[in-house]
């Protein structure tokens, strides 16, 4: 599936993604960049770390704190929206960045809406896995819809109150 990188101040841009989903029970090739379900990490399967790079996929019900033992060996965390309504993943993204200090790629996948791109960006998501028919323009307008924010978030942008009281 196509992947778009998202970042503050630039439009979503296609990136050449070479992550692969590792089949259940399969051993990775040393040259592969593999993404595994969280259950496989928790199961203590260390052979996956024989891959060139390792990532994990979380659903809404997964607790990001539980990633701690592996986090420094992970290059990507995929957050899968079973439905766009599953707002738990915004918390997951934000905690990954702010609480756990994760520096790798945080990728949204699944049923999120292009109109949620602004929120994804603010909570620390850095790429989107999308379908071929995904309306990139709509995601781009969401990303640049707001030039002012009322809260601090992961994007490091000033809140309105910072700008109001800037020296």
């Amino acid at each position: 599936m196509p992947v778009l990188s998202i970042a503050v101040g630039s439009d979503p841009a296609p990136i050449n993604d070479n992550w692969v989903r590792l089949a259940d029970g399969a051993a990775p090739n040393a040259t592969d960049r593999v993404i595994v379900p969280f259950a496989r990490l928790k199961g203590g399967d260390n052979q996956i770390f024989g891959a060139a790079a390792v990532g994990v996929e979380l659903g809404g019900a997964d607790q990001v704190e539980d990633l701690k033992p592996w986090l420094d060996r992970l290059s990507i965390v995929v957050l899968r929206f079973a439905t766009f309504k599953d707002g738990r993943l915004f918390t997951s993204a934000r905690m990954l960045r702010q609480r756990l200090g994760f520096k790798g790629d945080v990728r949204a996948a699944g049923d999120f809406l292009p109109d949620q791109t602004a929120f994804l960006l603010r909570t620390g998501v850095s790429s989107l896995e999308v379908s071929d028919t995904f309306p990139v323009d709509a995601a781009a307008s969401s990303a640049r819809a707001y030039s002012v924010r009322y809260q601090h978030a992961v994007d490091g942008l000033p809140a309105a109150y910072d700008e109001r009281h800037a020296p």
Partner: peptide, 14 residues
């Protein structure tokens, strides 16, 4: 009001 407006984490609550 300000804090809750377009809160990026809490716009899709249960």
């Amino acid at each position: 009001r300000q804090w809750s407006t377009f809160h990026p984490e809490f716009s899709f609550l249960p």
